[in-house]
Structure formats: structure tokens, C-alpha cells
Design a protein around this nucleic acid. Structure first.
Lengths: 305, 305
DNA sequence: ATCACCCATACCGCCAGGGTATCAATGCCG
DNA sequence: CGGCATTGATACCCTGGCGGTATGGGTGAT
């Protein structure tokens, strides 16, 4: 059985995600016939049926499900090799730190100070990304280390928790629910979350009627908070964020039974760089040295109203 | 920066391992010029120098070292995708168990019995491999689960230790050292180990003068034991193996300070198959149910003489 | 029954990538 | 110090794999 090629995996993943040869071909910027042929060739090569296709429907077989999972991680590993080699070849290497802006619990400046004092420190470079993109940034080599929320998809990663805070929900101050001091998850039924919100992390406590798709796309925190102020969406945030972004038009309220939000430092499992080790050390000591009460805001005292 | 292709990674790894374009080309079954061009193109694509080359010498740059490591894991991930998809597409899927013959501590039959009783069990299929090939077999998808010795290169793997035994050294009965009841690592200085022996696992206690290359290639245990009997080599083995393969011509002796040999069950970190879980469960309960004294042979009572 | 949709097949053209021949730089040795 | 062997780089050619266009054929909806 000859070796697979990256192109074949990309094609397969596109079709498996779209479940439609035409759309997948468009996404790959190619015509549909060569794509169909390539998938057929792949199936012959693996001696396996990957798709159950009729002229009206395309579905993954069990073998296809397996390949989808493994193909994604293989593609991540390949692009990681490219990114890391490119990075290692730069004349001035840097430590690329992935994080979601405003979700660092206010620790970032102190962590960076402690990190800068380490002997093995390289100049830091922030890699900003949306909700839940940090793990993938580590896996595909765009970043060397990350600050992220647990739990997350940690395949191939190691992590160390830094601090745990209460998760609050941000509501418009005019919202009827803002009059109450604490909420139940069911109270939020039917509300909308910002686009790309962490549906995964909150799934256990989130009623299914809470949709993670907002009418309008909001990429940064101010846009999201503006949408909250107008009552278009609600938004889950760790207590530290609530404390650092008080707004008159927004009320932060605890939700009964909502899982805590844990900030962690994470890195690729096979990382060997001393700069990564230095950053992890800096992050852990900074978190340990930070007075816990200031960060574990008690749920009965919402930060703004 | 365009995506890398598997072919480029294979070429790079070959050159990085051979540090010689001609030999690498021969290994890849191609001519040297296209290989040189491909590597140059790769360097342009990554905007990085991977090799420092003169006409007489080829050396890896730091970026090249990074890429070598990542390229190997990426290639493993790609072949894993192929192997697992192929396996998942078989009409009669099986659980592929990797192990080194005769190093299972005698637990295998009982583990297989316990496993067969599990509801999620698939028919087992043994994948035999040499020393230390088990981790790679898991990573590249040739096996679903493995019995192996710790410590090992466990990147991407999870493992659960099953039992720890004393490590003994096998000597010819006629060897002067066989007259003694216990040895010191330095006593073995200058002896040869069988080809492909676990130099890594024993490195801490092994004097550097102990060479892991034998004059003759020996693939299976009987061949190795024959070489031991003739005094050609010495051989490290867990106590259970010594107990199960007593030979008049061979003396097993404890070595002071030699690390214990730990048998573990291991599996790919992202494994989701219920059959793997069933096997791990079976292995752990079997090991727990096995009377410890029978397996933790006391070092002061060598099994044969 | 017709139509629209969508995957498969047939056929064509291009260029990426491999082969051969050769050059050029380097270290060895007489 | 000058040939010589070694080895990576360059020049040039050619083949086959891959993508494009045109079209077929099967299926579900109205």
C-alpha cells in the first residue's frame, strides 16, 4: 500500500466535512470531477469504502469516520512541521504565545514580567485567536505555548492549571433577569451566544435551546459587549473579565450550576524548547503568588450592575 | 507558504538521516539530482536553511533538527491514518496487539482470556516486533494496543504499568562471572548485547563500553539464548523470562543497580475504540489479580545456574 | 413525465518531478 | 604542487499524474 499524500488527505477532509463533492471542490478551488476521481483512487489505495454515495446523498462510512479523525491530526502534524521549521529558521526566534484577548485573567502582564527574568527567555510574540483556537494553534505549530480555558480538546497537549474562577453571564442591564442576583441555566433558554462561542466548554450546563450562532458576527470583546448592551446576545465570562470590563449597561450574574472557568498554560506534549519551559515556570509561579481571593470572586457579589 | 507534501518530508528525513545526498537517493530508490533539487525547493518554501553543505560534508542546521523531529512524527501520523482507515474498513475488524515475544511476563494468555470475556472484545491479532518497536507500531497505526517495557518513547501514547520485575543478565554458565551470585554493571564492561537491544532503557546503568551491536544478527529469543550459551553475548531479561526459559547452559544473575523492568499496557492517546478500552481493562485486572510474589522474583535467587 | 441536481466517465493538455549528462568545488595523495 | 576521486549543483529532456471541460446517467421532487 503506497504512502498517502497530503493532497489526498486535504481532499478527503473537505468532502467529509461538506458531504458534497461539488461544494468540497469549490472549497478546494478545483473542479468536481478530479475530486471525485481522487477520492475513488484513495478508496482503492486503502482498499476501503470511505463514503456511501447516492446521487442525492453522501455519507461517511465507519472507516471514513476513523480516517476523518486521523487525517485531521495528520494534517495538523504536517503543518506543524512546516511552521516550526520556518520559525526555527528565523534569525531572531521568538516565543509565540497563543491566547484569547481579555481571557487571560489579568495575569498576562505579570507572567510576561516573570518570564522576561528567566535566562532562557526569547522575546515573546502574542498570537491572538478566537474561542478554542488555542489548542489547534499549538498542534499546528502556529504557537509554542498558550493560555487557554479548560476543559478543551487537549489531544497532544500538556497543560497546567493556573487559576479557577466563577463563570458569570453578561446580560443587558435592562434585561428582566438582571434584576435577580442569581440565575438558573434554564432562565437563559432561547438567548443567543456570540458567534463562535465556547459551546463545547459549556455544553454540560447549557440548555440546548441556547444557540451559539448570533445574528451578527463579533470578533473582539468590545463588539461582543456592545451586542450584550443592546440585549442581542448573552455572553459567558470568567469573573476576572467581568471585574476588568465593568459597563453601566451590562450586568454580570452568576448562574447556578455553571461549571467554573479554569485558566491554564498549555504546550505541545513533545515540546523541548527551554523557552517554553521558562514560560510555563513563570506562569505557574505567577499564578501561585497571586492572592487567590482576588481572583476567586465570590458568586454572590456580581462585579457590576 | 504552501502546504508541505509527504514526499518532501520523506526526502528530507532520508537526507537528514544519511547526511549524504547520494546514499539518501539510493535509499529512496531515485537519482541524486532530483533529490538535491527537492531539498533546495523545500528550503525555499520554508524560507530556511536546513542543511549546511560543502561538497565534502552535509550537516543539519538547528532548523533542520527541529524539522527532523517534527517530520518524523508527521510521517507517523500520516501512515497511521492510512493503516487505521484500512483496518477500520476490513469486513472483520480485529484488535491488533503489539508485543515483543517472550517479554510479556507470562501474562498474555490470562490477559487474552479476560479480554475475550469482555462484551466489546474483537478477535485479537498479535503484531510481533523487535525491541522498542511497539511504541512506533502504535503511533503509525500498525497496532491498536501494546504490551511493552517502560520506560520507552511514549510521545502520543498513554500507558498503565502492569508489573515490575527485577532485571537479570543472562550469561553463559561457563562464564567466570556466573560463579558469583550478584554482579556490578562494571563487571559487564566490554561484553556485547544482541543486535537491536534496548540500549535506551538500560542506558542509565549500562557502562558505555557495553556495545548494543552483536557480530551476528539474532531476531528471536532462541537465537539470542544460543548466542548467550556460546558466550558470544550477554543479554538483559526480566525475571519472568528467566523463569520461563531456564537452560542448563545459561546463568541468570542480578546486577546491582540495574533498573527494574516494568511491563505496561499502552495505547494511542486519542484511541476511542471500546475494544482497546476492554483490553486495557482486562490487562490491568489480570495484573492486579496475579499474586505479586510469583512475579517479583527476589533478586537473590537467580532462576537457573 | 419532466426537470434539476449531482456524482461518474471520457478525453485532453500541461507541468511537476524524475532521469541522464555534466560541471564545479573540495580534500587527498603522490 | 598537480592530478584524481568524491560529491553536490546545474542544464536539459521527457514522461505520467493531475486537473480541466464536456457529457452521461441515476434519483428525487413537483
Amino acid at each position: 500500500m503506497g504512502d498517502l499524500e497530503v493532497r489526498q488527505l486535504r481532499y478527503f477532509v473537505a468532502v467529509a466535512e461538506e458531504l458534497h463533492f461539488g461544494r468540497a471542490a469549490a472549497r478546494l478551488d478545483m473542479a468536481q470531477p478530479p475530486l471525485s476521481r481522487a477520492i475513488r483512487a484513495l478508496e482503492r489505495q486503502l482498499d476501503t469504502t470511505l463514503f456511501e454515495r447516492t446521487t442525492r446523498q453522501v455519507a461517511l462510512t465507519p472507516a471514513g469516520e476513523v480516517l476523518l479523525r486521523d487525517a485531521r491530526t495528520a494534517l495538523e502534524a504536517v503543518t506543524a512541521a512546516a511552521h516550526r521549521a520556518h520559525q526555527a529558521g528565523r534569525t531572531a526566534p521568538r516565543l509565540r504565545i497563543a491566547l484569547k484577548a481579555d481571557l487571560d485573567g489579568g495575569l498576562l502582564p505579570r507572567i510576561l514580567d516573570a518570564y522576561a527574568a528567566e535566562a532562557a527567555a526569547l522575546p515573546p510574540e502574542l498570537v491572538l485567536g478566537g474561542y478554542g483556537e488555542q489548542p489547534q494553534a499549538l498542534r499546528d505549530g502556529r504557537a509554542d505555548v498558550a493560555l487557554l480555558q479548560l476543559p478543551c480538546d487537549d489531544r497532544g497537549l500538556d497543560s497546567e492549571p493556573l487559576l479557577t474562577e466563577t463563570t458569570l453571564v453578561a446580560l443587558a442591564a435592562t434585561d428582566p433577569l438582571a434584576a435577580r442576583t442569581a440565575l438558573h441555566p434554564d432562565d437563559l433558554s432561547g438567548r443567543e451566544l456570540p458567534d463562535g462561542a465556547p459551546a463545547d466548554g459549556l455544553r454540560p450546563a447549557r440548555p440546548s435551546s441556547l444557540r451559539p450562532t448570533a445574528a451578527r458576527r463579533a470578533s473582539n470583546l468590545s463588539e461582543i459587549l456592545s451586542l450584550v448592551e443592546t440585549g442581542s446576545i448573552v455572553f459567558f465570562a470568567p469573573a476576572s473579565l467581568a471585574r476588568r470590563h465593568p459597563r453601566p449597561g451590562i450586568a454580570y450574574r452568576p448562574v447556578h450550576g455553571l461549571p467554573d472557568s479554569t485558566l491554564a498554560v498549555a504546550w505541545p506534549q513533545d515540546a523541548r524548547s527551554p523557552a517554553v519551559a521558562a514560560f510555563v515556570r513563570a506562569a505557574c509561579t505567577t499564578a501561585a503568588a497571586t492572592p487567590a481571593p482576588a481572583h476567586r470572586t465570590a458568586p454572590h457579589r456580581p462585579a457590576a450592575s
